[in-house]
Design a protein around this nucleic acid. Structure first.
Lengths: 349, 349
DNA sequence: ATCATTATCCAAAGCGCTTTGAATAATTCA
DNA sequence: TGAATTATTCAAAGCGCTTTGGATAATGAT
């Protein structure tokens, strides 16, 4: 059933039927009612390809995921983020078009999707320092929003970010207040902007108290469980091991925990741990009381909000000013932090 | 730049330019070369909305994700699966259209996407016993494929599944061979078909040796870390606790591990654990030697293969026979399994 | 040299919708 | 009552591609 058939069935023009269905005010109420009823009865739905061509709107948002050997963006955090974004899209009649590409094709893919009109806008994941996608998309004049920010980028752009610097500063402050003096950092990949800012917060907290940071305590990598595990073993084998660790995510924190257990260290007593908790739905930070002390911000909520902001931009005038939103993470106290005991963790052979 | 502009620029008809670009043999080689060069030079790309309307092909695959209060499909496993599928799509020029819907709207959304021609086919996630989506999509005459199977469904359908029954049977066989007699099951949500089959394998292994299963050893839930943790605590508090556990995923296995540590039990000595390992890229089962003994099958590979099979079906004749593929999981021996010591795990106060 | 092929190219007709610009009918105003 | 509004409806022109069904020119066969 298409428009033509439906309208001839009703004895009306395609124009009237189309306008009736699209809520224009220039069709009589009784006519609209007839049309709507007939559409429902015959299960008529406008062909979205034709609609897209006629309106110039694809009603879809592009998410481009680069594939590389080492860097894996399709991860847990990403999954929750798009779940949130997708909720926002559905609510506004848009949907999510996801394409994974070899990293070398990434730019070309943005260009293709924009120039072929396959999408109305882009969601940008995992921005790096001075992310070149920003300039590209500004030049292409296509709406987009960053989840995160891009340090050292002097182009205008819209973003939503959690205050990673203050989150990590607060985490370190808490540990220093507890008497810890050797705090390790298990950061994410420091090509990523969020990791850069987290390191800044980590550093700032130390600086404000006039503390030097031992470079051997600072690590950066993809946030996997083995990364947490192995780095912790390495750290604890140092001549002066840390008494506390700040980790960039719950997953490496689990690795830290495993290493601690193996070494006979009790988390929260012999070793304090604070992690960033993205509040992933299927990977809660404990049930009830938080397992880990954490700086928490729901990445799913962020996705939902980013989706809404992006669609607002798509539907706004081309020259609408950029929007920015900075979220503060919440600091939740769990069982993984405690005072520094005697300046050295208790060791058991 | 559109077709019309490009062709007038070249002094050719739209027909010829279009056919040149689409590789038809009725255009002179030198003409094609000119056209291709000009297209490249002017950065011409056909408008995909117009193309979709003219060809009747959306070049996109639908993934519909229901949202419910309890059941969360957008999880880790799902993320890796779509990453794989998406690779297959990109390779064939398709992309992935994902929409999350309230569970009550799920069927209507399949219908809408199919009837509006927004997608060319569907990927079905997380099939249940007698999954009603199969009949719906068969009636709609739209290509689709299941990742998994649907017990008790007598409709024809294409699927790719890992042999969950044999995987769990082998896991239990191994434990029984090691002398364990009380083996617990931490299954996934038993509304899901994969969980049903895993339980069958679990049961079958016992039956073949004439062993009764204590119902209090069998659990079923969403596969989260706290689920593994709490269930293990519960199990170990029984009068006759199990000496081995089979878990449906790595994530609850981590919870098992945490509980074991808390109880002073050493995994692989006091408590044996085997889990199903979906080989998630960012959540490896240890690095190097496997952490857990596991039945392993890459869900990402499955996604890639499902994507290819689905596109094959989309591009094949409407009456092409269904395709099915059953993968055997690999059994990898890690450090989490060992012989049953004295029939009772060592307990430490 | 004539007719049948083959190689190239193109005009025009869709694909199924939205939207513009008018036409017509119904009301309102003076 | 006649002019001016206002309310409804519609024919036709796109949107930018692909594809059908010829044309026309070049080549081959007889």
């Amino acid at each position: 059933m298409n428009l033509k058939e439906l309208s001839s069935l009703l004895g009306l023009s395609q124009t009237t039927v189309s306008r009736a269905l699209n809520g224009y005010s220039d069709v009589k109420a009784s006519t609209r009612a007839r049309v709507v009823a007939a559409a429902k009865e015959h299960n008529y739905l406008p062909n979205s390809r034709a609609q897209a061509l006629a309106t110039g709107r694809a009603m879809s948002i592009g998410h481009i995921i680069p594939r590389t050997a080492q860097h894996e963006l399709v991860n847990t955090i990403f999954a929750d983020f798009i779940a949130g974004a997708s909720e926002a899209y559905s609510a506004r009649g848009y949907d999510l078009r996801m394409v994974t590409v070899k990293d070398v094709d990434e730019f070309a893919t943005y260009e293709r999707l924009a120039n072929t009109g396959a999408v109305d806008g882009f969601m940008l994941h995992g921005p790096t320092r001075d992310d070149k996608r920003i300039q590209l998309l500004n030049d292409l004049k296509v709406p987009f929003i960053l989840h995160g920010r891009s340090s050292d980028c002097n182009q205008p752009y819209s973003w939503l970010d959690v205050n990673n610097r203050s989150a990590f500063k607060r985490a370190v402050d808490l540990l220093l207040d507890l008497g810890h003096t050797r705090v390790a950092l298990l950061n994410g990949d420091e090509n990523m902007d969020f990791a850069i800012r987290r390191r800044e917060g980590f550093t700032l907290a130390h600086e404000q108290r006039g503390l030097e940071i031992d470079p051997s305590l600072m690590h950066s990598n993809e946030m996997s469980e083995p990364y947490g595990f192995e780095t912790t073993r390495q750290l604890m084998a140092l001549d002066a091991p840390p008494t506390a660790i700040v980790a960039s995510a719950l997953i490496p924190a689990l690795g830290i925990q495993r290493a601690a257990h193996e070494l006979g260290l009790k988390i929260g007593r012999d070793l304090s741990v604070i992690c960033f908790d993205d509040a992933l739905s299927y990977f809660p930070n404990g049930s009830g009381a938080p397992l880990f002390t954490a700086t928490r911000s729901s990445v799913r909520d962020a996705g939902r909000r980013c989706g809404t902001l992006l669609i607002d931009r798509i539907e706004a005038a081309d020259d609408a000013p950029v929007v920015t939103e900075l979220w503060e993470a919440e600091l939740v106290i769990g069982g993984s932090t405690g005072p520094n005991l005697a300046g050295m963790p208790r060791r058991e052979a």
